[in-house]
Nucleic acid binder design. Structure first.
Lengths: 336, 336
DNA sequence: AAGGCCGATGAAAACGTTTACGTTCGGGCT
DNA sequence: AGCCCGAACGTAAACGTTTTCATCGGCCTT
């Protein structure tokens, strides 16, 4: 279909080699021919064919991002961070979400082979075996929030346990006792770490209080349902810690609709600190992760791996801390 | 680096042609050799090289999405809709955002040449000349919310004017008079349409009331600033219509912090109906656009264009209606 | 004036696939 | 028995680049 380098060469009365040299600034062409080639290329609206170029160059200037989902503010922020960093490195972004688990993720990984210079993988539901089986060998890869085993790959992950513990201890310290927890999708590694920290903190500080755990799916709707259940419980919990902010926000809506006040009747806290958390009312207490920073850091690491390819830089495992962000939704303990 | 089709052929003691036929299910291989080839390919973990394949196939199974930005819920929803539809068509997604306008957008477009089967372009700040100059010729393309001129390209756009008019008339009908408007980024086509409808509706229904227009940048922060200005104005407007929901939400926060009530002191309305709109408090009245649907529809249209390539299906221009979603943030008019 | 060197240019190989076209071979038909 | 046909498989061209290597001048040096 399109106009190729041969067309330009013929029109400019030079060889394709000269056109390539001229357009890529490799020198070895006289200023006069360079100008002529440039003119012809522009007139013909010649655009190099990416696939052909990267076939020989072995560079695609593209990185692939395999994410569990694209829904919600968390991924919006994450992609934004990745995109921003990618832009400064002159890299394009090929995204893929692996909703339905292993099979689709594997297919996406295959489809990326030969189209990307590196891989950014976030796959909280994939185990190490899946990764070893499906990750292309020899392709720079950075794992995010993925269960890590050996130092095969570079990895970044947020400190789920630390963040969750901060939240629970904040709630306890503010005077709340009966603290419920809303889970995320089953089998999600992040969720598991957060729930474990929740249980541990409870067992450590108030061993006489039993954990209360409700199911959730990381979206507002499931948080809303959990909120309805909470409001109807007897005795009613006095605080709830949702495994992410989206659910916390949905939960708040349900609590309000049940005629209860936040935080007087039930305090609410989340995890992630999505941009919206500060704009809901009351503003949401949460464990803040610099989500965009996480994406940026991952891409930087990947870019470094791509550039200095193969030299013995050990595959770093970085833990991103989560810090407590206290807002109005957990403001003061109820008098008791 | 990787293992190629030649390695598989050698190991299975057949020609590369047979390997290709076998693995692509083109027939012409005996069941026995097919099995052997499959086994070798699996053992060697052979993955076809995408660039090489698409070079000859002229199919990349990838579509490029050029968006003005990736920030916020609007794009999150849009990408999600596109991704969902792409998945059902077996297409990958190459995203690119063109923050800094023309130059970067042009570069992104060039980089996509030969890597995508079609283009999804949303570029509210690009004019027709830019598009004609930079869009690759002969590549299926669908424009979204872009100023359209002739029927060169298929295009979808939301009915900005209709939606904005609905919002303003709702505010007027509920009893608000002094209605302010918060703009979006300068030169943005959507914003221009919304502002025009706002002015027209005001002029038509309450010609004695002067428009009040504040600058904005589509993000919460600029909405917040606008809210501060609003709260300090003398006389104070009794309602504000933000050009998108993100700004409306930021604006609400500022209004609340100024000690004013919503909607008793100032009513607030937005545009887009992002998922979060129903979860803020009070819930936000807005002009609802099925954002994910928009993305989905655009991709469907593009996929159709790619498949039935070139046959005279006229390039449709579809207008997506925006419907009024009334929530608590504009609940009742102040008594006057 | 002859030889050598360097800069500009062209020819061709290479990247990893798919596919058009041959070639071989076995079997069914006359 | 000879012929033809189709199935299985191999050879090689093609896709659009980049890059190595060779070639061709011209100019500088001796």
């Amino acid at each position: 279909m399109g106009v190729t380098i041969k067309d330009v060469a013929r029109e400019a009365k030079v060889s394709v080699a000269s056109v390539s040299r001229a357009l890529n600034g490799h020198g070895g062409v006289t200023a006069e021919t360079l100008e002529r080639i440039r003119e012809v290329a522009a007139r013909l609206r010649y655009i190099p064919h990416g696939a052909a170029r990267s076939l020989i160059t072995r560079r695609t200037h593209t990185i692939g991002a395999l994410l569990p989902d694209l829904y919600g503010e968390f991924f919006s922020e994450l992609i934004r961070g990745i995109d921003l960093a990618a832009r400064t490195h002159g890299l394009q972004l090929l995204v893929s979400s692996s909703h339905d688990g292993a099979a689709e993720a594997a297919a996406a990984l295959r489809a990326m082979q030969g189209r990307v210079d590196g891989l950014l993988v976030m796959s909280p539901h994939a185990d190490a075996a899946f990764l070893r089986q499906n990750l292309p060998v020899g392709l720079p890869t950075v794992l995010m929030n993925t269960v890590l085993e050996r130092d095969d790959y570079a990895a970044l992950s947020v400190d789920n346990a630390g963040g969750a513990r901060l939240v629970v201890e904040h709630l306890l310290g503010t005077g709340y006792r009966r603290i419920a927890f809303i889970q995320g999708p089953a089998g999600n590694h992040d969720v598991a770490e957060r729930e474990r920290a929740y249980r541990d903190a409870l067992a450590e500080h108030v061993p006489d209080v039993a954990p209360i755990v409700l199911p959730g799916e990381f979206d507002e709707a499931s948080g809303y349902r959990a909120g309805q259940q909470l409001a109807a419980m007897q005795p009613r919990p006095d605080a709830v810690f949702a495994a992410n902010d989206m659910m916390a926000i949905g939960c708040m809506a349900a609590i309000r609709e049940a005629g209860l006040r936040i935080p007087e009747d039930i305090a609410v806290a989340g995890f992630d600190d999505v941009p919206m958390a500060r704009y809901v009312s009351p503003a949401l207490t949460t464990a803040g992760v610099r989500i965009a920073e996480l994406g940026k850091a991952a891409l930087e690491q990947l870019a470094a791996q791509i550039d200095g390819n193969g030299d013995g830089t050990p595959h770093a495992h970085v833990r991103i801390p989560a810090e407590l962000v206290v807002r109005a939704s957990t403001a003061r303990a109820p008098s008791r």
